[in-house]
Amino acid sequence: MSSTETHSTARRTAALWLLLILATLLTWHLGENQGGGLLTAALLGIALIKGLIVAFDFMALRHAPPLWRILVGGWLLLVCALIGLAFWKGSLT
């Protein structure tokens, strides 16, 4: 890896870290509000994006064979979808 390449990957990591921190503060802030379907969807969407950043960038899955990207990315999607479904089910009663 050349030093310019290293410099850019370090900057990329710092930028993604900042994005993750801001997303966490947003989640924390949104938690002050009353619940609701839209809010639940937004919070799950933020969690999904954060998880994908960690998986694809920090865990370097973007360089991995497609099967592994599907397995871990699919896990995140499935878990968020299941949670969304369960909360929607709970809102009906």
Binding site: T24, W28, I46, I83
Partner: peptide, 13 residues
């Protein structure tokens, strides 16, 4: 990554 799901699920939503 697991905590990123756990935190909103248990503490926030």
């Amino acid at each position: 990554m697991v905590w990123l799901i756990l935190f909103p699920l248990i503490y926030v939503i």
